[in-house]
């Protein structure tokens, strides 16, 4: 960390940073204000910054106009299910690649890492056809199953498991512990912080995911919050106060997660640089 050389430069730095932070934060605060305005206020020719009296009822109205409760439940099931799957599978696979020796290990590991190069849009159409053939379109399975594991998560866990001393595994094995028990009782407790990072990132990412839920759902009841919100806007394109209320509902969980785990979160971003 470098010290600011002189008071002038320091003041300039503060001013610039405060201005940029205003640009990043104020629109989101405005979204909150918008969610509390009356419909008339949102449509006023001279836009209103803060509502005359906050309309908390907008949030209730949102649930009447659209199955917003369903959207929330769907988002929780999908993002929660995928996160759980990652926490179960990614470290297990990472452990095998970190600590086991077996034929074709390197080949298989490269084949695994190669999937990081495959973006969602490449899989979008064939997965849609596959889900359609399975009769899974418009179900939770269709939203969860294609994302059960993630090569980057596996790679990350392997990096964290590799430094664990082999002697620990040895000792447990001599004590007669089963392989699954060694994994659960010896390995997993050693990588808790990495698991936290993996879990947080997976959840926030999946909570915000837009393209696949848009493609794979068709009925209103099956939409996740981001998709439900975007399509709500198409249907009720003048109801800005309700769209904003929905955005707040979508945003608040991620911002809470972030505020309570900023350290893990920033570490997670830095780790993504490991790729």
């Amino acid at each position: 960390m470098r010290s600011a050389p002189n008071p002038l430069a320091r003041t300039a730095s503060y001013t610039f940073l405060i201005l940029v932070c205003a640009v990043t934060v104020v629109p989101l605060l405005y979204m909150g204000a918008l969610s509390l305005q009356t419909e008339a206020e949102t449509l006023a020719a001279n836009p209103v910054l803060w509502p005359e009296s906050p309309q908390w009822g907008n949030y209730a109205e949102l649930f009447e106009r659209a199955p917003f409760g369903n959207f929330i439940v769907n988002s929780l099931i999908v993002a929660g299910g995928i996160t759980l799957a990652h926490l179960v599978f990614d470290p297990l696979v990472g452990y095998v690649f970190a600590k086991f020796r077996f034929p074709l290990r390197n080949t298989l590991f490269i084949a695994l890492l190669a999937t990081m190069m495959i973006p969602l849009f490449v899989r979008m159409i064939p997965l849609y056809v596959m889900m359609s053939n399975l009769g899974w379109l418009d179900t939770h399975q269709a939203l969860i199953v294609p994302f059960l594991m993630d090569a980057f998560g596996i790679f990350l866990m392997r990096q964290f498991i590799q430094p664990i001393p082999d002697d620990l595994i040895h000792a447990a094995r001599i004590d007669g512990a089963s392989e699954l028990r060694i994994y659960a009782r010896v390995i997993l407790p050693q990588v808790k912080p990495a698991l936290a990072v993996l879990g947080l990132f997976t959840f926030v990412h999946q909570w915000n995911e837009f393209l696949w839920p848009l493609v794979a759902t068709s009925s209103e009841e099956m939409r996740t919050i981001p998709v439900g919100l975007a399509l709500f806007k198409q249907e009720y394109f003048t109801l800005w106060h309700l769209t904003a209320a929905g955005s707040v509902i979508l945003f608040v969980p991620t911002v809470l997660i972030f505020l309570f785990s900023q350290r893990y979160f920033v570490r997670g971003i830095t780790l993504s640089g490991l790729k």
Binding site: V20, P27, V204, N208, F210, S247, V266
Partner: peptide, 15 residues
Amino acid sequence: LLVPYLTSVAIVGLL
């Protein structure tokens, strides 16, 4: 500075 990164593209777009 990091807060907008937490938003879904749905929020960003609509807002």
